[in-house]
Design a protein around this nucleic acid. Structure first.
Lengths: 344, 344
DNA sequence: CTGTTAGCGCTTTCAT
DNA sequence: ATGAAAGCGCTAACAG
């Protein structure tokens, strides 16, 4: 009889039909002779279906190499299983550790991480967040260029947590600046420095706070403080500042971050200036290159990775209408070779 | 009459109904009194709809703050507008520039980038790719731990391009190893070195190729070459190798990458050994810290960023059934202070 | 040029 | 415990 042939043809046809296509719960349902909704239940709500059928379904799923389609799931549930981290500049090593921490937590929780860069522009940041919002379950904004007033309304549709910068309206995870700066100031004070420069990005919110704190600490220690502006948190910007540092006559400088400090070190070396003889340098963050530099860099170690993990954790169990939490992580001074007693 | 009231009530109701919810094309359609499909057309296929209505629709969309839902779009089209980059270790600075390049190209093309780490495990990599596959339009695999045979079938459902490592079956973007290594060998040879160590990861495919190339180059220059294995492409692994390097009696070493070289430099410094007096060191990649190190590192500069951009471009205009392209980018030796003539 | 209709893959009531 | 049916937001024939 041609019965066999028909069956065989039917099978081949079915296989052909889904050639290339990834199997769906319909394919599984057909294979085990059940309804797709049962397959869905079996796969996602263990226990809410007969143990034996659940087994059959799982077996069929495995056989077909089935993977759930997150997009299709996102539509009815509104849950995408992915989070986004948006930051000004992927280049900055500071952000790497932070991304790494966030990614690790996301991954171990079965979530996916989208990384997006804003080039330090507020408009791009706004645009990015709005675009991403329907694709994610939440956002991590790092060193945001947006104001609290701009961020707050955005956070009403999907949770947003601020990482590495404070926020009134958002949950945030930040390093304890006051603690760190106090240690830095104590250190230079004990070494005998009385004239210090702060190499900062005056434009940013975090920059301002840091300056204010530093000024208070300096004043109370009878240290004179000058501000020298750098226009970017980068190596080159730090190198550019060398002339002004020298001109200022200070004996120690607190750099906005390690990149800026690296730039200063590099420029000094190229100019034949020896550090810490000419002046001491303290960085911020303790990126991996800090200890490799010549001289190795005294710096405030920011728990970047932990900031990333804590921020992602906060995001994972965040509840849209709950009072914003604030996590403040300790900051420690790592003393290396770029600081010493002033030579004059 | 209560007509006004009714209308007003209706309006408020409609507004209430979509409170919190992001507006959809249905909301726009309702607002302008047209069919959702017309809205879809107006927004996506400019020209295929009456100019006036298109304008009205765009205005309404803007008024409501409409944003397309990529998930919803992905379902019927199969296009998600996002790509994934999967790599062994986000920590590795080498990957940063690569990510940065890829992200930049993705973003300027309106695409989103998912970053995923595999911890250098082949199983995790496989799992990751399979999971991600339905969420993306293509994958970028960096320094894959999977074999060509494993990768090839995966690449049948969504395009995959290999970055920074060669592949037979996949389009790939790689640095010109032969060119780079030749320069490195010429450099040490000219300096007078005749006994060199290669500090490599013997497990990896790329590691093997590099070793083979290096061996050929050494042999033809009458340089004796020994292999010293490091178990990870990391600073610590490099530091661990110091004893073996010293024991080998070589006068120059080619490190697997800059991290390994950094580790060696650091260990040497800690042990009071001066480089390049004791032995010369050549790194690989030219990550940003290479020039900051003490001594600054002679290294093969890999066009990491360009590898990232070219790979993403390849992915963007990749066609599932086309012969895999291969882009080979030049590699240059950057001579700094970690290499010098042998002192013995 | 615009409307109708069906469907992408999955979840979720509501029945049975 | 399982099935039937509707719907998430959008696109894509196909009609008109």
């Amino acid at each position: 009889m041609s019965n066999d042939e028909t069956v065989a043809a039917g099978r081949t046809e079915a296989l052909d039909e889904r050639a290339g296509r990834r199997p769906t719960i319909y394919d599984i349902a057909q294979l085990v002779g059940l309804n797709p909704s049962t397959v869905s239940r079996a796969l996602n709500k263990p226990g809410r279906t007969n143990a034996a059928t659940e087994e059959r379904i799982r077996a069929a799923a495995a056989e077909l190499g089935y993977r759930v389609n997150p997009m299709a799931r996102a539509l009815p549930t509104g849950m995408t299983g992915t989070f986004a981290i948006v930051l000004p500049d992927i280049t900055n090593p500071v952000h790497f550790d932070l991304i790494r921490g966030a990614e690790q937590v996301a991954r171990t929780n079965g979530r996916t991480l989208i990384v997006s860069e804003t080039e330090g522009s507020a408009e791009i940041e706004l645009e990015t967040i709005e675009t991403l919002q329907s694709s994610v379950d939440g956002l991590l904004v790092v060193a945001s260029r947006l104001t609290d007033d701009e961020l707050a309304p955005l956070a009403r549709s999907k949770p947003i947590v601020a990482a590495n910068h404070a926020s009134q309206s958002l949950p945030s995870v930040i390093p304890d600046l006051a603690m760190g700066l106090r240690q830095a100031m104590d250190h230079v004070h004990e070494l005998g420095h009385r004239s210090v420069a702060y190499l900062g990005l005056s434009g940013l919110q975090m920059g301002r706070t840091r300056w204010d704190l530093t000024l208070d600490l300096a004043t109370s220690r009878d240290i004179s403080l000058v501000e020298i502006a750098v226009n970017a948190p980068s190596i080159d910007a730090g190198a550019d500042a060398l002339r002004r540092v020298r001109a200022s006559g200070v004996t120690a400088v607190l750099a906005y971050n390690d990149l800026v400090a690296h730039g200063l070190l590099r420029a000094a070396r190229n100019a034949g200036i020896t550090i810490p003889d000419a002046f001491s340098v303290i960085g911020f963050d303790d990126i991996f290159s800090a200890e490799l530099a010549a001289p190795s860099l005294t710096t405030l170690r920011s728990p970047l990775r932990e900031i990333g993990t804590r921020a992602m954790q906060t995001l994972l169990d965040s509840d849209l209408n709950r009072v914003p939490s604030r996590v403040i992580l300790p900051l420690d001074l790592v003393i290396r070779d770029s600081t010493a007693a002033p030579s004059r």
